[in-house]
Amino acid sequence: METCRWIPEAGNGIEHLTLRRDGAGLFAQGAVIGDDFGAFYTIRCDSAWRVRHALVEVAGGARLELHADGAGRWQDGQGVSVPALAGCIDIDLTASCFTNTLPVRRLGAALASRHEIAVAWVHLPALTVEAARQAYTRIAPRLVRFESLGSGFMADLTVDDEGLVVHYPGLFRRID
């Protein structure tokens, strides 16, 4: 089991994450506290780091549950197909550093070249979700370029040997 914590570089808050790995894959549980919200998340991935289940709950009652088949097909918590997320393999929670690790680990050595991906982008605290285009490229052993293709935002993320973010310039830094 591994535990990590991040704080924002501006404003108040914290993200606390606990990771457990076994032969079936990865189980991540986390809590994110922002200036005006608190949320809990659980993300399960298979052994290839493809998201298979995500549950996000905002303090006060809002809840989002998604299931994925690892090949880009998603369903909500009631088993209803979510065609707007077709082709997404990863999930990205707006207030979470951890979710950047998912494509970094899943793509692994392939990050030697730029990879455009689609992610299920969950906005916190509203819990709205949409497909978003992103790109990841390893530019040094511990440096990964993240690009949000819809907005033009780009950041060079410092990661550890496990692909967990150590520093997300302007947004987050790890404190553990």
Rank of each mutant, 00 (worst) to 15 (best):
Met154Ser: 13
Ala132Val: 14
Phe146Ala: 01
Thr101Arg: 06
Ser148Trp: 11
His16Leu: 15
Gly30Tyr: 05
Glu147Thr: 04
Val122Ser: 08
Gly70Thr: 02
Asn100His: 11
Gly79Phe: 01
Arg44Tyr: 15
Val56Ile: 05
Gly70Ile: 02
Glu116Ser: 09
Ala84Glu: 11
Cys45Val: 01
Asp156Asn: 05
Gly79His: 02
Thr94Phe: 13
Val56Thr: 03
Arg106Ala: 12
Trp49Thr: 10
Ile89Glu: 12
Ala135Asp: 07
Pro125Lys: 00
Asp90Lys: 00
Cys88Thr: 09
Arg63Cys: 13
Arg138Pro: 12
Phe27Thr: 11
Leu17Ser: 06
Glu130Val: 15
Pro125Gln: 03
Leu127Gln: 00
Leu102Ala: 07
Val159Thr: 06
Ile7Val: 14
Gly163Leu: 11
Ala10His: 06
Leu143Asp: 06
Ser81Ile: 00
Leu111Asn: 00
Leu127Asp: 03
Ala54Asn: 01
Glu2Ala: 13
Val82Trp: 01
Trp49Glu: 10
Pro83Val: 02
Leu111Ala: 06
His123Ile: 13
Ile91Cys: 08
Glu9Gln: 04
Leu26Trp: 11
Arg63Ile: 10
Ala62Lys: 03
Thr158Ser: 07
Asp92Cys: 01
Trp6Gln: 09
Ala71Ser: 13
Ala155Cys: 05
Arg145Val: 01
Phe37Thr: 05
Arg142Cys: 14
Gly72Met: 04
Val166Met: 04
Val82Ile: 03
Ala132Lys: 08
Glu15Cys: 02
His53Trp: 03
His53Gln: 06
Tyr136Asp: 15
Glu65Val: 01
Ala84Thr: 12
Arg73Asp: 06
Arg133Met: 15
Pro83Ala: 00
Arg138Glu: 08
Leu26Gly: 09
Cys97Tyr: 05
Pro83Arg: 00
Asp46Leu: 01
Pro103Leu: 08
Gly60Glu: 03
Arg174Trp: 08
Ala109Arg: 12
Arg50Asp: 14
Ala31Leu: 14
Val166Lys: 03
Tyr168Leu: 03
Val51Trp: 07
Gly79Lys: 00
Asn12Ser: 13
His16Arg: 08
Asp46Pro: 08
Val122Lys: 04
Leu55Gln: 08
Glu65Asp: 00
Ile7Ser: 12
His67Lys: 11
Val58Pro: 12
Val32Glu: 14
Arg105Met: 11
Ala59Leu: 15
Glu57Gln: 02
Ile91Asn: 09
Ala71Thr: 14
Arg142His: 15
Ile14Asn: 04
Arg52Ser: 14
Ala28Pro: 12
His53Val: 00
Gly87Thr: 02
Glu9Asp: 08
Tyr168His: 03
